[in-house]
Simulated scan of single mutants.
Amino acid sequence: MANWRKFILWFAQEHVDFRVQEFDSLVKMFGLQVRRLTEHTMKPFWLVEFRDTDTALQYASRSISLRAMFELYAHSNKLPEFHQRLRNHVTENWGTLAEYFRLESSFKIVVETYNKHFSQKEKVEKIESMDYLPIEGPVNLKNPQVEWWYIEFWGLNPTAVPPEPEEIMFGRLVANGQRHLIKELSLKQRKFIGNTSMDAQLSLLMANQAMVRDGDLVFDPFVGTGSLLVSAAKWGGYVLGADIDYMMVHARCRPSRITQKVREKDESIRANLKQYGCADRYMDVVVADFSNPVWDSRISFDSIITDLPLVI
């Protein structure tokens, strides 16, 4: 029988308004069993319970908002209580934790603070305050086999920092989110872009909210330069789009890059999909007025996602 396990979710402080929606969408898409223990969703650190570790890893495998996820060992808002809980957790769960404290397991301990700066000396003191942990392996700061994180959260208001941390947490790193895709799909290196091309992070978040999964048929009725198609295809969707702007769809509009005078012949939405290894998921794009649908009534889309045009 699976046991509920507690985790710390560390979120990036970007597009925070999408955080809850993305989380709920991924939970629904994968059918995950989860309990959210943190009430204030604007906090960068959430405490959650997943049904098991595999469930937690499923969530991390798609989240763009998530920076990293840690298995929770101890949590408190008072230092003495925190240390006692950490001691108790290691003692009570030694059977499952022993492998992470082995003599041959290299490790590092990271001290992370939010809304508070620690000097290197203060960070070392925090680490030394946990000298009761039965760590035996060698320190490896570049590529450790085990990472433990000590985290202090000092509130969200930089002008009214509390005298003591609001939360103190300690856990083992188990997974990173998928934020590497933001750089991988960056507009800076993309073949075909326009003045209104959506940034990679936002388009990935929208595709997650649309719960795009492998094999889905995804449509963008205001496709522009295809940013949403790129993200949907990256998640496994087969993509197609439409737009009334002939010049944009066929990449004949003026270049938006300052250093570029004319469009290259091979610029296109299809070229963008090919650039990211998703050419096999590109269906087509057409010039069409959204007010006059051109699709056969038998076509059924799994997802329709778009950035609505600004009407003045």
Rank of each mutant, 00 (worst) to 15 (best):
Gln84Trp: 04
His75Ser: 08
Glu104Asn: 09
Pro80Glu: 10
Thr91Ala: 14
Arg85Pro: 00
Leu79Val: 03
Leu79Trp: 07
Trp94Ala: 04
Tyr73Leu: 14
Leu103Ile: 08
Thr91Asn: 05
Ala74Asp: 06
Trp94Met: 05
His83Cys: 13
Asn93Ala: 06
Phe107Trp: 15
Leu86Arg: 01
Arg85Tyr: 09
Asn88Gly: 07
Leu97Lys: 02
Arg87Phe: 11
Glu104His: 09
Glu92Arg: 07
Glu81Leu: 15
Glu92Ala: 15
Glu99Ser: 12
Ser76Lys: 07
Arg87Asp: 05
Arg85Phe: 09
Thr96Pro: 00
Ser105Phe: 06
Glu81Asn: 14
Arg102Cys: 06
Glu99Trp: 03
Phe70Met: 12
Lys78Pro: 01
His75Glu: 14
Val90Ser: 03
Glu81Pro: 00
Asn77Cys: 12
Gly95Cys: 05
Tyr73Ala: 14
Phe82Leu: 10
Leu72Phe: 04
Glu81Gly: 07
Leu79Pro: 00
Leu86Ala: 12
Gly95Pro: 04
Arg102Ile: 00
Glu71Ala: 13
Lys108Tyr: 04
Phe82Thr: 06
Phe82Tyr: 07
Lys108Ile: 01
Glu104Phe: 04
Lys78Gln: 14
Ala74Cys: 10
Phe70Glu: 06
Gln84Leu: 15
Ala98Lys: 15
Asn77Lys: 08
Leu72Tyr: 03
Leu97Glu: 13
Glu99Ala: 07
Ala98Arg: 13
Trp94Val: 08
Tyr73Met: 11
Arg87Cys: 11
Asn88Ile: 08
Leu97Gln: 08
Leu79Thr: 01
Phe82Gly: 08
Glu81Arg: 07
Trp94Pro: 01
Leu86Ile: 02
Phe70Tyr: 15
Ser76Ile: 03
Arg87Ala: 09
Trp94Leu: 10
Arg87Ile: 12
Lys108Met: 11
Arg85Ala: 15
Ser106Pro: 07
Asn93Val: 05
Asn93Lys: 11
Leu97Ile: 09
Ser106Thr: 14
His75Phe: 06
Glu99Val: 05
Val90Ile: 15
Tyr100Ile: 03
Tyr73Ser: 10
Gly95Phe: 08
Gln84Cys: 12
Ser105Pro: 00
Arg85Trp: 00
His75Leu: 11
Phe101Asn: 02
Phe70Ser: 04
Trp94Lys: 05
Arg87Thr: 09
Leu86His: 01
Ser105Arg: 15
Leu79Cys: 00
Asn88Tyr: 08
Ser106Ala: 08
